[in-house]
Design a protein around this nucleic acid. Structure first.
Length: 592
RNA sequence: CGGGAUGUGGCUCAGUCUGGUUAGAGCGCAGCGUUCGGGACGCUGAGGCCGAGUGUUCGAAUCACUCCAUCCCGACCA
């Protein structure tokens, strides 16, 4: 492809509305343009990267035995009413009515449609298992789209759905997808990590997320240095010995603490460590007030709390509600003497000690020498706090680290959730009707591009891994007016294209500096520079975009010289991916 | 939905507080010339209902009110 005939509108400056590096670079490299909040057009270069991502995903899905289909973007509301999600999915589901006043929505995911499809077709165990997938545009009316391609309202997703006749089959299907995902992200040259995850609103029994490791990631994960344990922070369990405290505690007493609202203020005022204070958080769970207690220096994990409660929705109580429940100003809530709070949940850690400081439920007062077992009515002790890097691994007791990641894939074991709700049955070997066991498996095909750039960039621009690069090689013709140089550049370009290498030939009438800058910006992993100076000496210059390392290739024996050089670049990428994965996940290496 | 910020040529911004000729700069774009191995320089030129509406005023990009859009933080989420 000749640059002069292509369309790559690069920008020297990043748009003002771009915050994260992938967003800035995608726009600057002329890959995407924003239409409006959360909606982006893909320009030719961006589409090429997107297609590379999609192709790898398709190849590995096919290899894993999944079958590609395409389902409609627009879905009837009736199907969603049948599954119960019309009510439960929330505002993220964009609904509308057609001219006949019938309910419709734009598909944020396709469990309903695929279940409907399969239930009408598959009637016998002989037809199972089956795994159907599509690569398609999804729409989710995100509360707050942000970070460019990272969190859009409209995005390209690969979603697959497996149907099995029994539990072992369902587990095999899940495993097949897990393995396929590991291959996909490995092939893309990305450093990633599968982690245990919360299954969230989609529901189901267990799930793994595939996280691309990047410091700018939205999620934090907990990874053990010594064993295979890896989990999303919102899921990671905190180890607890289960031993209750046996020390005795002096009688509880109220102490005046004027104007001390935060844990730190109270701790400082009373001369104790924040870890000796009980933090009392008042929540409203599906309309009912509940209290959560964690140590003063800990964070309540809302996902754990919500799952423990089995609530559909929980939110921190409004200040006015706090005043009503405690009978005191905000900042003085405590477990003893709450009004109208029937259930009080305490983190396990609070069982292991006594003699606490807590709010007195009276303005400007706290209590000390609080013994939760003696003085308070705790409904249950449970794992409620967020794990920290100081906690031991919940599996092996080893040391944890908490790197950040970007979720690019998610595999769920759904079980019977949809097949029961939507009556997807088959006849088993004994002629008995049974529900199909489902799994669903998503990959953010467009998000992969953003995640890839977050992970692979430098101050000059994008550094695409070879498998995702829109063009693997860019050939810079530094002197388009020089016939010998132009002929050589064209010859190299044609040679590479004939080999099936996606090659971009920069034949523009621009100064060399512009070409160098643009080549770095758009991130082709391999750059070949054809210029008068080099050619006089019989060399083509080659630059490894990732390392910046420059080599000279013999122009007379280009094919061989290029092959050798390219092999070195590829080897460097492989070592790099392995090293970085090892660095983040410690000595274990490997993605699993 | 709560908190904060911003809307001025295609892009990045100045001008707004302290209202007053034809609204500026850099980049980009078009033409000409000089340049030509890491985002060149000179000259010429095109391009703007200053987010929208209402008001205050002799006079509004500038002040007031309303609305809209975008971005950031939070709640929420593959």
């Amino acid at each position: 492809m000749r640059w002069s005939r292509y369309y790559i509108p690069t920008l020297k400056e990043a748009p003002a509305d771009a915050e994260v590096v992938s967003h800035k670079l995608l726009v600057r490299a002329g890959m995407i343009r924003k239409l409006t909040s959360g909606l982006y057009s893909f320009l030719p270069l961006g589409l090429r990267a997107l297609n590379k991502s999609g192709r790898i995903v398709r190849e590995e899905m096919d290899r894993a035995g999944a079958l590609e289909i395409v389902m409609p973007v627009v879905q009837p509301g009736d199907l969603w009413k049948e599954s119960g999600r019309w009510e439960h999915y929330g505002r993220e589901l964009l609904r509308f009515v057609d001219r006949h006043d019938r309910d419709y929505c734009l598909g944020p995911t396709h469990e309903e449609v695929v279940t409907d499809l399969v239930r009408g077709e598959i009637k016998s165990y002989r037809q199972l298992p089956v795994n159907l997938y599509q690569v398609q545009t999804k729409f989710r009316d995100e509360i707050r789209p942000r970070f460019g391609l990272m969190r859009c309202r409209e995005f390209v997703m690969k979603d697959a759905y497996s149907f099995d006749k029994d539990e072992p089959g369902a587990e095999a299907s899940y495993r097949a997808m897990y393995d396929a995902y590991s291959r996909i992200f490995s092939r893309m040259g990305m450093r990633f990590r599968p982690v245990q995850a919360d299954s969230g609103a989609i529901g189901g029994s267990f799930s793994h997320e595939f996280m691309v490791l990047a410091d700018t990631g939205e999620d934090t994960i907990a990874v053990c240095r010594d064993c295979d344990f890896a989990a999303n922070l919102e899921k990671a369990p905190v180890a607890f010995s289960g031993a209750p405290c046996t020390e005795t505690c002096p009688p509880m007493e109220e102490v005046p603490t004027p104007d001390t609202h935060t844990v730190d203020e109270v701790a400082a005022f009373l001369g104790v460590a924040p870890a000796r204070v009980v933090k009392t958080l008042l929540y409203v769970a599906d309309g009912e007030p509940v209290a959560a207690l964690v140590r003063g220096d800990r964070e309540l994990n809302e996902v754990k709390f919500k799952n423990l409660l089995g609530a559909a929705e929980i939110e921190l109580a409004e200040p006015a509600r706090v005043v009503e429940l405690t009978g005191a100003a905000v900042g003085f809530a405590g477990p003893v003497g709450l009004k109208g709070v029937a259930r009080v949940y305490a983190d396990n850690e609070l069982m292991a000690a006594t003699d606490w400081v807590a709010g007195a439920n009276r303005t400007d007062a706290h209590v000390r020498h609080l013994d939760l077992a003696r003085d308070a009515a705790v409904t249950v002790f449970a794992d409620l706090r967020t794990i920290t890097a100081q906690d031991p691994c919940p599996v092996c007791g080893g040391a944890l680290e908490l790197p950040r990641g970007i979720e690019v894939g998610h595999v769920f074991k759904l079980g019977l959730k949809y097949s029961e709700a939507m009556n997807a049955k088959f006849l088993d070997e004994e002629g008995k009707e049974r529900f199909m066991i489902m799994g669903c498996y998503g990959i953010g095909v467009s998000r992969i591009i953003a995640a890839c750039i977050e992970q692979n960039h430098d101050e000059h621009g994008i550094v695409f891994p070879i498998p995702l690069a829109p063009f693997e090689v860019v050939v810079l013709n530094l002197a388009p007016k020089d016939e010998a140089v132009s002929a050589k550049a064209q010859e190299i370009h044609d040679f590479l294209e004939a080999q099936g290498v996606d090659t971009l030939l920069d034949d523009r009438e621009e100064r060399p500096g512009v070409k160098f800058k643009d080549a770095d910006l758009i991130g082709c992993p391999m750059q070949l520079v054809v210029g008068g100076k080099g050619l006089e000496r019989g060399v083509i210059e080659a630059k490894d975009r990732r390392t910046g390392e420059k080599s000279e290739l013999d122009a007379a024996d280009f094919a061989a010289a290029y092959a050798t050089w390219r092999a070195g670049v590829e080897r460097g990428w492989a070592d790099y991916a392995a090293f970085r994965d090892g660095a983040a996940a410690s000595a274990k290496g490997g993605g699993e």
